[in-house]
């Protein structure tokens, strides 16, 4: 390896924490101001600080998918993101889907196809399907399977989740 070093430069840096620090989160289009420690995950900020408990906490270590939300349109695990690192970015949760009391077509399709049993993984599954359909309005069965492959369902609703995603795509394409 070459020996030329990067000369470390000391510059004034903005340190936050370890105590609570103010942050702004944009969730489902609304800006929220809250006070959190840097160790607060996005998941706990949503659930505990904002009362948005639709996003579920099931493993808290990025191994189940129940906390899937969209960050700038991309599906991520909210339990593996620090809340303060999500400042200024668009966060979508399951609570943001239904508008004016009308279910989003994905939600309607999940009910119609019975794509859930206990329902605990459901918000995460729906957000993964949302991410897929936002990007690919005409997915194949294989696309759907891959899109929800990061969302475990212990009840085994998978076959119906696949059907619901395809049905939702159909509903969205037909504009209903």
């Amino acid at each position: 390896m070459a020996t030329k070093a990067v000369r470390p430069k000391k510059r004034k840096i903005a340190v936050r924490g370890p105590g609570k620090t103010p942050i702004k989160l944009i969730v489902n289009g609304e800006t929220h101001e809250l006070l959190v420690e840097p160790r607060r995950t996005l998941l706990d900020a949503l659930r505990k600080d904002l009362g948005l408990t639709g996003t579920k906490r099931a493993c808290d270590e990025g191994t189940c998918g129940a906390c899937t939300v969209l960050l700038d349109g991309k599906p991520i695990y909210a339990c593996m993101a620090l809340a303060l690192e999500c400042e200024g970015r668009s966060i979508e949760t399951v609570e943001g889907l239904a508008r004016n009391g009308k279910l989003h077509p994905i939600q309607a399709a999940f009910i119609e196809e019975d794509a859930l049993q206990c329902g605990f993984c459901t918000p995460g599954q729906i957000m993964s399907v949302k991410a897929l359909l936002d990007e690919n309005p005409n997915p194949t069965l294989e696309d759907v399977k891959r899109a929800v492959s990061g969302n475990l369902c212990r009840c085994g609703a998978y076959p119906k989740i696949f059907k619901a995603a395809l049905r939702a795509a159909e509903l969205l394409r037909s504009g209903s």
């Binding site: 990025g62 998918g65 599906p75 991520i76 695990y77 993964s128 991410a131 891959r146 492959s149 969302n151």
Partner: peptide, 8 residues
């Protein structure tokens, strides 16, 4: 991993 982890 998974789509979510690959986005992160």
């Amino acid at each position: 991993a998974t789509p979510q982890l690959r986005h992160m």
